[in-house]
Structures are given as C-alpha cells and as structure tokens.
Computed example of a mutant assay.
Amino acid sequence: MISGASIAGPTLGFWLARYGYEVTIVERSKTLRLGGQNLDVRGVGRAIVRMMGIEEQILAADTGELGLQFVNSKNEVEAEFPSNGDDSFTCDAEILRGDLVNILYGCTKDDVNYVFDRFITAIEQDAEKVKITFNDSSTDEFDLLFAADGVRSTTRALILGEEPELKFIGLYNAWYTIPKMETDTKWARWYTAPGSRVMVLRPDNHGTTRASFSFLSDDKSYLEEPDSKQIELLKILKEVSQLEIALESDLKEKKVSLERSLKLSINHQLKPLKMEILEKIPTCPNNMKQCFLQNDMSAIMLSKNSLIRDLPKLESLLTQESSRIGYSLEKIEVAFDRYQQKRN
C-alpha cells in the first residue's frame, strides 16, 4: 500500500511492481492533481527516469524555457543566464509537475491499482501485516505501507505521531498559474522589488505563465489565515508594488526633465559669452565658432588645425571642455588671456 499518487508514490510503485509486488496506491483527490510549478529532472533523478524508460517523454514535455533573466521594474533585462546543463537555473529537462504526474501515471496504471477519493484514517500493525482503515470505513490488510503523500499528510501523523514543530524563518511564497501576456517570452524573469520581495515568471508549454511571489515578514499570523485572507493580502501587496513602480518611473522622468532643463539653461546663459569671446579671436574660423557653440567634439577636431600652431593651450582647453555640458566662465577667460599673450 502506497498513500499518495503524486510523484514519489507512482515512482515507488513502478519499481515495486517491476520486482513482483502487488501494489495499490490510494489518493485523497478524486482525480490526479495536475497543478504545480516547474520541476528540474537532473542528476540522480535523470538517471532514474532513464532506467524507467520515460526520459524521452519528459524531454518531449519540456517547458521550452531558455534560461533566466534578471529584469528591472520596467521589465528591461539587466542580466541573463542561458540554460547551460545541470548547474544552471534552467536545465534541459524542465517539466511541469502535472505533466510529470501524467507520465508516471501512464507508465504504471497497467501494473498498479489506483484508488482515488480515498485516504487512510487508522493503522493497526502486527508482526506480519498492517491493517488499514479508510475514510469510507472500509478496511484492508497489506504487507507494507508507504507514506508518500507529503510532509503534512495524515498518514505520516498516524505512523510517527505528532508532527515535528516547523521553524518559522520569515519567508512566505505563493505560486500561481496566470494568463500569458504579450510581454512574456521563453525566458524565466526574476524581479527583486524594494521591501524584500521577489517575483518570478516562467513560461510553460500550455499557453499560460507560471508565477511565484515571495516576501519576508516576521508576522507569523499569515500561516493561520484562511485562503480568502491570504488572497486579499497578496492583492494588497500587488497594489503596493504597482504604486512603487509608478513612483519610481515618475521620479526617473522628473530627473531626466530636470537634467535637460539644467543643460538648456546653462547653454542659454553661456552662449552670449561664447560668442563675445569668439568674436575677439579674429583668426578663429567660422566653422570653429559654430562647432564650439554646439559642443561638437568631432567638428572641433577637424577644424582645430588652423589654430594648432599658435594656440596649443587653447586647443587643449577646447578639447577637454567640449565633452562637458557647459563651459566654465573662469576657464574661458583664462584661455582668452593666454591667447592674447601668445599673440602679443
């Protein structure tokens, strides 16, 4: 008897049946539970599915994920890590949990007896057998009982007694399946938001997107909240994140606008002075004057040859200052004085 028809249960059932055991798997749900996120089949797991003869089915059900991209609040890529073997975020055997469950069920259903909508409520064990009572009050006897229905299963509690106390580390995770959007790609995208929050979006091969949201909090009360309250909390956190993104974008736009206004103001104030100084330099070509006003470095380098013999210090000054937003009044006046001394 195996309790749990997810991944561990059917895998164990496969090998027990291969070695001649009569196997029954009971599952609390009425059908296979096909929800869940990505699973990486790598390392020892890859070797096991190869021995089971289902490696090619798993590869055929790959999600198609190309790798991991870290993005900013505008979904712009800051860094990316393509799939590169078993050591990368994305391996070459990325499969959805539900797809793997289907594959395992398909390769065991003819050799294993599956019983759905049933779970264990009592266990009596002697030296030879284990007597099991189910939720429908029926009973049966088996040589062995395996609990493969999760760390919080009632079967595990019946076998081991009270569950060990879980240590709260202040991390909450939520997983979703959401509609695919135009901005979604074949890359997994990771965004770290202010306030110790992380959102990860991953592609799947079913036309949807798998999403996870993680955040840190010392508040343990969320653990006991009903689903409706947890959903309400996540909606609030989503609204806060959207507000922060909007504020960040607004601040960035205001910063760019301020820098642009400052540059225009500086150039506007310095333009008359530039013209006055250049008018006092009779040997300065007209095209040199124009490019000087436009801060055009390439044009300055082309036209500087007419002054290079007589004005080495002015040339150096112009080359350095042409790459800046504005010109320093004091430095221009000093350059003009030096030029006058050179001419005299």
Rank of each mutant, 00 (worst) to 15 (best):
N173G: 15
F168Q: 11
G150Y: 03
T183R: 00
S214N: 13
A188D: 04
L158G: 08
T208N: 12
S214V: 15
S221F: 00
G161L: 01
P179H: 02
S153V: 00
G195W: 02
L201M: 11
R156M: 02
Y191N: 13
Y222M: 14
K180L: 10
F215K: 07
G207L: 03
E224F: 10
N173I: 13
D218R: 12
I159H: 02
D218F: 08
A157L: 02
D184G: 04
G195Y: 03
E163D: 11
E182Y: 06
V151G: 02
T192W: 07
S196W: 08
F215C: 10
K180P: 05
F213K: 09
T154E: 07
S217G: 03
E182A: 11
D204A: 01
M199K: 04
I169T: 15
E163G: 05
A157Y: 03
T155M: 03
K167Q: 10
R202G: 05
L158E: 06
A211N: 09
Y176V: 08
D184L: 05
S221K: 14
N205W: 06
S214P: 11
R210A: 13
W190N: 08
P164I: 01
S196L: 13
D204H: 00
F215N: 08
M181D: 13
P164D: 07
G207N: 06
R202F: 03
E225W: 14
H206V: 08
G170L: 11
D204C: 04
E225C: 13
I178F: 00
T177K: 10
E224K: 14
I169V: 12
L201F: 11
E225Q: 15
S196R: 10
L171K: 10
V198C: 11
I169E: 15
L223G: 13
T155S: 09
K220P: 15
I169P: 07
R189H: 05
W187Q: 03
L171A: 14
W190Y: 12
R210G: 14
F168D: 15
A157P: 00
G161E: 07
T177H: 07
G161V: 01
L223F: 06
K220T: 15
V200D: 06
L166Y: 14
L223E: 14
D219C: 07
M199Y: 02
T209I: 14
T183C: 01
R202Q: 13
F215G: 09
E165M: 05
A188N: 02
D218K: 15
L223R: 14
R189C: 07
V198Y: 00
E224I: 08
T155W: 02
F215T: 08
A157V: 01
L158P: 10
Y191D: 06
Y176H: 10
E165D: 09
F215Y: 15
G161P: 07
M181V: 12
K167W: 07
K186P: 01
L223P: 13
A188C: 08
Y172V: 06
Y172N: 12
T185D: 04
T209G: 10
T209D: 08
S221I: 03
G195R: 01
W187Y: 05
